[in-house]
Design a protein around this nucleic acid. Structure first.
Lengths: 193, 193
DNA sequence: GGCTCTTACGAACACTTGTTAGAAAAAGCA
DNA sequence: TGCTTTTTCTAACAAGTGTTCGTAAGAGCC
């Protein structure tokens, strides 16, 4: 059985850690802080996790895995490049809305990963960016997109969706669907009329 | 005279601090780290700055001041809203290219500001965002822009330019001018043809 | 030279950090 | 019930934190 009691508690620690890391940063969060939020003493958490580093590793690698498998899925569909890019943007936004804290940690605190996980994470991200860039490049070659610098297009998209977690709060006059639609309109069609 | 020897050395400490804060975060940078980069012992730096907090305050408030005065300047020009937004995007990118580390610190480490500077900084940022949002809103009312959610448009723009410092390196096949043009095209006209 | 004022340093401070060891408590099971 | 295993705690550790103090070295000026 995968969902043992221990595994569940462990995941709870990871979730609380992600929230705190997002709020105060990896370095700014102490094991005693985390223990307080979890409802244990700091020492007791070591029955569930090996180290503070390991917490960061587990959060980052899980998110990285999701991103990569999502890209892989989309690459294999038979759709226009514009639709593929749109679908990818949608997945980014959804993941951000559903897993805000963990995604935030993977975006900001990955640099505190110890080796060799740091190198692995950077490589995974590079692979992901390369795959995404290829979609954009092929879309340009097919005449679906404007002939822009591919990196600029790529990072403008990634940046725009990355910061959703910083200012978007569900249930404040803007639904997740409207958010998706408007971001896609903005990125694909632009602000100007 | 403003540029005394002391002031210059002080600014050097602030510049080195910004680089380190950007690289390793505010909490991840120790005064001994900073002293090493400056070429002094940690204790000696206290002849130039009052505290580690003060370093962060000086960096953040300087950048905040630049943003606000730039917005103010643009608001008072007589141009179309599209041109005003374009000009603001340009200024963002330029500041990012010229003052990368300091801007990065103001974007990421402001949350470690002590009170009351923290509240002041958040208020300044809110004011700035409100002013920027008004430009977008007026542009929509004037029929220059598409009728999107204003916050989505605003934060998509801010996010896109904010992350320039994370991946743009001058002199690597993409000039600052091309960068500006492509980002503006992307944000105003969109990726799709 | 000597005198003054600024700058730099080493040592120490009180405190926090992640982590471990050993004992106590709780839970599972016969 | 008693025995075993898991979970939790308290206490402590070595290392690192920002900062202060007293003193030594240096610079500028007579």
């Amino acid at each position: 059985m995968l969902t043992t009691k221990k595994t569940i508690r462990r995941q709870f620690i990871l979730d609380e850690a992600a929230k705190l890391f997002k709020e105060k940063g990896y370095g700014g969060t102490s094991m005693r802080d985390l223990a307080g939020n979890v409802g244990l003493e700091a020492a007791s958490m070591y029955n569930y996790i090996k180290s503070k580093d390991e917490i960061l590793e587990l959060i980052c690698s899980r998110i990285a895995g999701i991103y990569i498998s999502q890209l892989h899925d989309i690459e294999q569909t038979a759709a226009s490049y514009a639709d593929k890019v749109k679908a990818l943007i949608r997945l980014h936004i959804r993941l951000m809305v559903e897993e805000g804290p963990a995604v935030s940690v993977a975006n900001h605190d990955w640099k505190y990963l110890p080796e060799p996980q740091l190198t692995a994470f950077k490589q995974a991200r590079k692979d992901y960016e390369k795959g995404f860039a290829q979609l954009i490049e092929q879309g340009m070659a097919a005449g679906e997109f404007q002939p822009l610098n591919v990196s600029v297009a790529l990072f403008t998209i990634l940046s725009a969706v990355r910061w959703v977690e910083l200012w978007y709060r569900p249930g404040r006059g803007l639904s997740a669907e409207e958010l998706e639609e408007d971001i896609i309109t903005m990125l694909l069609s632009g602000l100007a009329k």
